[in-house]
């Protein structure tokens, strides 16, 4: 759900850019606290995988598709602040080199997908882990991934409405509907990838508790 140039007003672009810059600089200090020497290549691999996976759109219904966002994936494996830095890097590369997501909308895209989505994925994952007492981890992962998509879709709706592009009551219901479907794909892929990585690489991505 990369917002292209032209969808947002100047005020919305500026405000979201400042919010993103603030959150990222805070995230960078938090990320450094938990980032070990060996975590740098792990972040590189995560960013590369997310870039690749974001190219693979899957059909969710006739005439609509979605692709992995990867915010919950990176949050669960590397922590939410590292996830924010990883997704921001991917979004910047996509906007600069591949014309995917507007350069004027980068602040908003970072805010929605790199700040809000990891934050919500973190709290939903930790919350359900507490409720389920560590059992049914896959359920917690699925719900965290689904929620990370829904919050971003809600934020996009608010930004479009604030920009005067379309009324909130008009855009919000269909955004929720389509992204509820896309979120199922996000949830399934996230469960499969997290399970595969944790089964095969205990100790490499060992910061799941840190998140």
């Amino acid at each position: 759900m990369h917002i292209p140039d032209g969808f947002l007003g100047i005020k919305t672009s500026v405000v979201t850019s400042f919010l993103s810059a603030g959150a990222l600089s805070y995230g960078l200090t938090r990320s450094k606290e938990v980032m070990g020497e060996r975590q740098v290549p792990a972040m590189g691999v995560m960013a590369a995988f997310i870039f690749a996976a974001q190219m693979v759109n899957f059909t969710v219904a006739p005439g609509a598709s979605g692709h992995l966002l990867g915010a919950a994936l990176a949050t669960i494996l590397l922590g939410r602040w590292n996830a924010g830095i990883i997704i921001t890097t991917v979004l910047a590369i996509q906007a600069l080199f591949f014309q995917d997501g507007g350069i004027t909308a980068l602040g908003a895209n970072v805010f929605n997908l790199a700040i809000l989505s990891p934050l919500v994925a973190h709290y939903v994952y930790q919350g359900f882990r507490a409720i389920l007492r560590g059992k049914f981890d896959k359920v917690a992962i699925f719900l965290a991934a689904w929620a990370s998509i829904m919050v971003a879709a809600a934020a996009v709706s608010v930004e479009l409405a604030l920009s005067g592009t379309i009324g909130f009551n008009v855009v919000f219901p269909p955004m929720m509907f389509w992204h509820a479907l896309i979120g199922i794909g996000e949830g399934l892929i996230t469960v499969v990838v997290v399970s595969t990585v944790t089964a095969s690489a205990i100790g490499v991505f060992k910061d799941r508790q840190h998140a």
């Binding site: 690749a52 190219m55 598709s65 955004m175």
Partner: peptide, 19 residues
């Protein structure tokens, strides 16, 4: 990641995304 990019990306759905 490189395999996904090389083999799966050409098979991606060309339908519009949610937004």
């Amino acid at each position: 990641a490189l395999l996904v990019a090389a083999l799966f990306s050409p098979l991606a759905s060309s339908n519009p995304d949610g937004l």
